[in-house]
Structure formats: C-alpha cells, structure tokens
Design a protein around this nucleic acid. Structure first.
Length: 271
DNA sequence: ACTGGCTCCTGAGGGC
DNA sequence: TGCCCTCAGGAGCCAG
C-alpha cells in the first residue's frame, strides 16, 4: 500500500492526535508481523509520553520518553486513532491506549509491516542504518546517482526502487517519475546519462510532493488516518493505464514486468 | 558485490 | 453462487 507520500500523509494525520499523550496500556492482539512485536511493549510503554512522530524512509518513528517505536506499514498497514471502546476491527494487531482515552490502532491484513521497539538511536537501527538518502534531501542529486549507477546492470527502475540508493520510492512513483523524466524503465541503470538522471531527480521530487499534496494515492485500500482516500490516482499518467493513450503523445501505454513488479511506460516518450 | 527469484500473508477481482 | 486463478502499493533473504 504505502510509499513515501502515503506514509507521510499518515504521519500528518496521526501526529496531532497523539503527540504529548501518555500511554496507559498496550494490547498486542497478534505479534506475528514481519518481525515479532516485542512482548515487552505492554510493560515498557505505559507511563511514557509520546514526544514526536517523525518519518525516515517508509518508517514512522514514534519518539517516546525512553525509546522509539518504529512502525512500517508494509503493503496493507493502516494507523488510526479512535476513542476507547470503538469496535476492534479484524487485523487490529497492536493497540496503544492513551490516558485521555484515545487509542492508536495498527491494522495490517497481510502482516508485511512491522512494529519495532528500540531504546537506541533509531537511525542507527539495522533496519535504517543502511538506507540511502531521502529523495527531498540535497544528497539525492544527479552526481550521486551517476556515480552509484555506473556499475549497476539492473534496470533503472529497480535501481530507483532500491532503498540503499534512495528511500521511499515504490512501484507507483517509480513508474510515474520515470515517465516524467522520459526514461525507459527497462534501461540498465549504468546506461542512463547524467542529464537524464538530473531529470529523474527532479521528477521524483515533483511526483512525491504532488502526491503528498493530494493525500497520497488510493489504488485498492489506502486511506489516511481519518479513513479518507488519497486523490493522486487521478494524476497518474502511466501506472495502471495499460492500453490507454499516453497523456503526452497518444501512444498506447505498455505493460511489462521488471524485477517481478508491474511496469508501465510510453515507448515513444521514454527512451 | 550484484542479480534475479522467492517468500511472508490476506483479500479483491475476473473468468468460467 | 462458488471455485480457482492471478495480482497487489514492500523488502529481506538466498543461491548462483
């Protein structure tokens, strides 16, 4: 489900509802996520105040007094805040009850996501330490991409989706960014010119920023913390548009598979 | 060091 | 209506 814009949309919705609240109780209904949820959580968290909700890559970082809860939404994860006593839904795996009665619920039908507790610097955690720069950071630029890509034989799309290269870009936005940059996603990364990589840096930032402004993209089941869908779907130019005309030249959008992921392109606009 | 393929899991949608 | 198949927005792990 979520790429960077959806995670950021979730963060913005959740943060004002839970920041500065004190945990009263934690309930783990199902600990078997991507990694087992720590059974220490119900003992450790109560009494701690939630100081901040930030984001690194696709991880939401809930900064408590004595540590950080690192939440990844996987493919189908949702967070929502409800009053106490609100009906528990199927797949509500973790519930954090605050002393004011509100409840933060982690729901994830496929359980590809994770809820990880760490008392160390989360940025040094093994899940985060090896990740590349944020797409919005100055480190993500054409010089960096050019240097990193010279030895890479993988498709430029797989390269762009590699979290060690740059974080937050999943399948939808990789397709969209490559279309806007006029780059064929199947091209090997090492063959893409610095000029084209420069276009890719800008189109990536642009697509992500526009998607955040629209509240993310809802294809199947993404909704924000209030249950609202994202409105970027109507802005998608290639993703999910196989057989439909290119918005630029009218050529029919082609569908193929790269690295086991659905890929869409206009063969005329993307070289 | 890279690469492609497989894997975890549930649910939706299409064809018959 | 139901059954079976394919596909899905992530990403770690493994063998080659």
């Amino acid at each position: 489900m979520p790429e960077l814009p959806e995670v950021e949309t979730t963060r913005r919705g959740i943060a004002p509802l839970v920041t500065n609240k004190v945990v009263e109780r934690v309930v783990i209904n199902n600990a078997s996520l991507r990694w087992p949820v720590s059974d220490q959580l119900p003992e450790v968290l109560p009494g701690q105040r939630l100081q901040s909700v930030s984001r690194r890559a696709k991880y939401l970082l809930f900064g408590f007094d004595g540590g950080t809860l690192m939440v990844h939404l996987g493919m189908t994860g949702h967070l929502r805040v409800t009053p106490t006593g609100a009906v528990r839904r199927r797949h509500d795996h973790v519930e954090i009850i605050f002393s004011d009665g509100s409840v933060l619920r982690y729901n994830d039908s496929r359980r590809f996501g994770s809820v990880i507790w760490t008392t160390d610097d989360p940025l040094c955690h093994e899940r985060l330490a090896t990740l590349g720069p944020e797409p919005g950071s100055p480190e993500f630029n054409e010089v960096y991409l050019h240097k990193l890509s010279r030895s890479r034989q993988v498709s430029v799309k797989s390269f762009l989706m590699d979290g060690r290269v740059v974080v937050g870009i999943g399948n939808i936005y990789a397709n969209e960014a490559l279309f806007r940059a006029g780059i064929n996603p199947a091209r090997r990364a090492c063959t893409v010119s610095k000029a084209a990589l420069s276009r890719l840096v800008h189109s990536t930032r642009q697509v992500l920023a526009e998607a955040i402004d629209a509240g993310g993209t809802t294809i199947r089941d993404f909704s924000d913390s209030q249950g609202r869908p994202g409105y970027f779907r109507q802005e998608l130019r290639v993703y999910g548009r196989a057989g439909q005309p290119c918005t630029t030249c009218g050529t029919l959008i082609k569908h193929l598979r790269l690295g086991q992921r659905s890929t869409f392109l206009c063969e005329r606009c993307q070289k």
